[in-house]
Design a protein around this nucleic acid. Structure first.
Length: 506
RNA sequence: GGCCCGUUCGUCUAGGGGUUAGGACGUUAGAUUUUCAUUCUAGAAACAGGGGUUCGAUUCCCCUACGGGCUACCA
């Protein structure tokens, strides 16, 4: 690697929520930058005014924040290469496109979108390029005077790159190694649109150059247009500063074919976006990992493992650990099918490994959202510690924790009522006596007393254990029942037994 | 169709000229937990096919097949 300071960018276009693959691209960019003590730049590629969606940029910012990834330069924090929104850089691009025209590497094209649509329908496999450009309306095919007149009259036009004839574009991809393309196979891409905005092809090259980007990570879907970009770097005279390319493997649908899309999430029942995305136009909510109950640490971890590993059996990595161990050589070439089951496993692991103090606020929010009021923080911490190993998603904390804060709204009566006897009522009445005694017992002692009492009353402990749980919890779930009783406290336990007894014997 | 990229258990992957091809998720069976989950133990499960090269290929090369991407004045 050269001695230049590493600078990478994540360049999303603000057209909606951020997709899994997008976040993974951010992550790999960020890991690489931080690994090499470089800069991570966020650049907004909003050159398509038709696809621009309000709120999408803020969403991207929020998403990075949730993930704990802080850009060194961005539209909001600025930086020495500002502005970082391509729409605000519009005046920059034209001169480069004109320079390319002047030097014979690009040309003006006057064909309308309708003309070309028609052409594509008529001619199978139509491409605007070497074989066809002479028969179309552009500064290559038209007489000079006519081109000048059209330009002078302000006729709408685009600028297209003129792909050279019979050349091979070679380059080295950090992930794929040597890749080459025949220029005859690549069409004359539009560089500057009729509205004066650059297309991605021009903008990415100009901005990467101006922003001194040293390594360019992007999805594999960009590989076919790489020769256009490489030629542009060359034609603009910047070849020596061209970043190294890394085309990341795609994240694929779990079942069928193709890359993962928003639709797959809805179809298969798992999120595809990082966070909830609400589309104001369609009034449609696309669910996100965050709201479903994923920890950002788990989310990043599972994304990283989709296409990267450190060469050992380790699967759980913190962000810092990933920065330390990251290397491009260990990114796989093939696309990875997304597996939601494994994704959940990562989250469960992260919940287990995260201490109650760190989980506190998030659990608090989830309980609050479900109208469970937490008054005692120390108590909440104890509750979290006793239940976190049984939670896969943060949202599971609601079911697992609610009964610690409020009496069961209803009981699983089918599990107790059919087998209820007066002896059981008698047992629990006596057990209330034990709980009421001035002496207090820990969970194990309480269990011993409970069992001894059962025997004394001629009952099997198992016959009263489940009813006891249902009295406290409402259903057949939760941690050890005596731990629950201890956490609830003697008086609350007594209240719940009495209340439940009424329901069971009614 | 054309061009480009890819191919190890169902999935994510490790490995690499000679291995009992390893791990994880999921799955199956069992143990623990007088709930459920956790946890633990064990099991089933893979080198796409065909040619080379080689004493020996899953590993290197070629072809085929299959999968994926691109083929917009979208990114």
């Amino acid at each position: 690697m050269s001695d230049k300071k590493v600078r990478v960018r994540f360049a999303p276009s603000p057209t909606g929520g951020l997709h899994l693959g997008g976040v993974r691209t951010v992550l790999f960019n960020y890991l690489f930058a931080k690994k090499h003590k470089g800069d991570f730049v966020l650049r907004i590629e909003d050159t398509d005014q038709n696809r621009y969606v309000d709120g999408a940029e803020q969403y991207i910012l929020d998403c990075l924040k949730w993930c704990g990834i802080t850009p060194d330069e961005s539209p909001v924090v600025g930086g020495q290469y500002a502005p970082y929104r391509q729409s605000e850089r519009k005046p920059i691009y034209r001169q480069y496109a004109e320079k390319l025209v002047a030097e014979g590497h690009a040309y003006y094209a006057f064909d309308t979108a309708e003309d070309l649509d028609k052409k594509r329908k008529e001619v199978p496999n139509f491409q605007y390029g070497l074989a066809t450009r002479n028969g179309l309306r552009n500064s290559l095919s038209l007489p000079l005077q006519e081109t000048e007149k059209l330009l002078h009259d302000g006729t709408p036009h685009v600028i297209r790159i003129k792909m050279p004839e019979g050349e091979t574009v070679n380059f080295n991809d950090m992930i794929r190694g040597h890749v080459s393309f025949e220029t005859n196979q690549v069409d004359d891409k539009v560089l500057l649109k009729a509205d004066g905005m650059p297309t991605y092809h021009l903008a990415v090259v100009v901005d990467d150059y101006l922003m001194k980007i040293t390594h360019a990570f992007r999805g594999e879907e960009w590989l076919p247009s790489a020769p256009v970009h490489i030629l542009l770097w060359e034609y603009l005279g910047w070849k020596a500063d061209m970043p190294e390319w890394a085309h990341l493997p795609l994240i694929l649908k779990p079942d069928g074919h193709g890359k993962l899309s928003k639709r797959d999430g809805a179809r298969l029942g798992f999120p595809v976006y990082a966070m909830n995305w609400w589309d104001a136009k369609t009034n449609e909510l696309t669910p996100g990992f965050r709201e479903l109950g994923f920890l950002p640490e788990a989310f990043l971890n599972l994304l990283a493992m989709l296409g990267w590993n450190d060469g050992t059996d380790q699967e759980i990595f913190s962000l810092d650990e990933m920065i330390e161990k990251f290397s491009i050589e260990r990114i796989s070439k093939a696309g990875a099918k997304f597996d939601f089951e494994k994704a959940k496993w990562y989250n469960a692991e992260w919940i287990k490994r995260t201490d109650a103090e760190t989980l506190k606020l998030k659990v608090w929010d989830i309980l609050k959202a479900n109208n469970v009021i937490v008054k005692d923080e120390a108590y909440l911490l104890k509750v979290i510690d006793t239940i976190k190993d049984r939670c896969v998603l943060l949202t599971d904390f609601y079911q697992q924790a609610a009964y610690f804060f409020q009496q069961p709204a209803e009981y699983d009566l089918n599990a107790v009522k059919p087998k209820w006897t007066d002896a059981k009522t008698d047992f629990f009445t006596a057990f209330i006596g034990i709980l009421s005694s001035p002496e207090t017992f820990d969970a194990a002692e309480l269990e011993a007393k409970f069992k001894a009492l059962a025997e004394e009353k001629g009952l099997k402990a198992g016959d009263v254990m489940l009813p006891f749980r249902i009295m406290l919890v409402g259903g057949k779930f939760g941690p050890h029942v005596f731990d629950i009783a201890k956490l609830l406290g003697e008086s609350e336990t007594i209240i719940r037994i009495e209340k439940a007894l009424e329901a069971f014997t009614a």
